[in-house]
């Protein structure tokens, strides 16, 4: 997969030789953040280098990811419908399981 980074009339290619299940731009616009299914990786948009990796953030497939506006946290939701909250400063991960009900009677 190729990710194209546009800045005014400048186009840059970032080659990523693996599957991308979800991606986001960091709150400070410096990094491309993506998941390859189980890891979270940071690509520096200026150097196109991989600068940070969180391995095996979940036992299950990462479906979506979001960064907090202050850039201190990343939340991912996974196939088992859990939320993994990653503290980017301490690098600790907290998992919220069974947040929502499986069935609702209407």
């Amino acid at each position: 997969m190729t990710v194209y980074h546009y800045h005014k009339d400048l186009k840059a290619e970032i080659k990523i030789e693996e599957r991308i299940t979800t991606m986001a731009i960091s709150s400070d616009s410096r990094f491309l953040i993506y998941s390859n299914d189980i890891d979270i990786k940071f690509i520096d948009l200026a150097t196109k280098e991989e600068v940070r990796v969180f391995e095996d953030v979940s036992e299950h497939q990462v479906e979506n990811l979001w960064m907090s506006p202050n850039g201190n946290y990343i939340a991912v939701d996974t196939l088992d419908q859990s939320i993994s909250l990653i503290d980017l400063k301490s690098e600790g991960t907290f998992i919220f399981r069974d947040i929502h009900e499986s069935k609702t009677f209407v």
Binding site: M67, D77, Q81
Partner: peptide, 14 residues
């Protein structure tokens, strides 16, 4: 079997 999470949103103050 799990309650599906459709979206997540951080508050502006994080």
């Amino acid at each position: 079997i799990k309650g599906r999470i459709n979206s997540l949103a951080f508050s502006f103050d994080s």
